[in-house]
């Protein structure tokens, strides 16, 4: 027989137990999650200009989780050395800019300066003057992605 006193004592316990949002630890399972890293299947070429102290960006869509290779293939323009170091970054379009999360400085070259794995989504590549330009530069960037 449950007495009223016992019931009164149990009510808060029942309520607390029922309302507790804390996750109960569960035992480990044998489930293994495998994330496939896809190789680049699409190549986009971005030909833009970068003014003195300025930047330019290009948005692209990664369809599958996989490797994105970004190559600053060439820098040119009147009075602009082809070996000039530029800033090259990858990030997400934000406002009127590309908010970069990866950034590297260097000259144009044949090999990817940025290579990383990205989840599906929209990203952007940004090329920026890091203080070396005296004239507006033309830039060519190759983006290979899944």
């Amino acid at each position: 027989m449950v007495t009223r006193r016992t019931l009164a004592a149990l009510i808060p316990l029942v309520v607390i137990a029922a309302c507790d949002k804390t996750e109960t630890p569960t035992s480990a399972t044998d489930t293994t999650t495998t994330t496939t890293v896809a190789s680049p299947t699409t190549t986009e070429e971005f030909n833009g200009t970068v003014t003195v102290g300025g930047s330019s960006f290009y948005a692209f869509t990664v369809a599958d989780n996989g490797t994105v290779n970004v190559t600053l293939a060439s820098v040119g323009g009147a009075g602009v050395p082809s070996t000039v170091w530029m800033g090259l970054g990858v990030g997400a379009p934000s406002g009127e800019d590309c908010s970069t999360t990866t950034l590297t400085n260097g000259p144009a070259g044949a090999s990817p300066q940025v290579s990383s794995v990205y989840a599906p989504g929209i990203y952007c590549v940004k090329v920026a003057d890091i203080g070396n330009l005296a004239q507006t530069a033309t830039v060519a960037v190759t983006i290979a992605h899944p």
Binding site: T3, R4, R5, L7, A8, I11, P12, V15, I16, A18, C19
Partner: peptide, 21 residues
């Protein structure tokens, strides 16, 4: 104990609402 079940309902409702809403 002198409290009635009616009081239990009241306390319960308050606790449930406060804890779960």
């Amino acid at each position: 104990m002198t409290h009635t079940p009616r009081l239990f309902f009241g306390v319960l409702a308050v606790l449930a609402a406060a804890g779960c809403s």
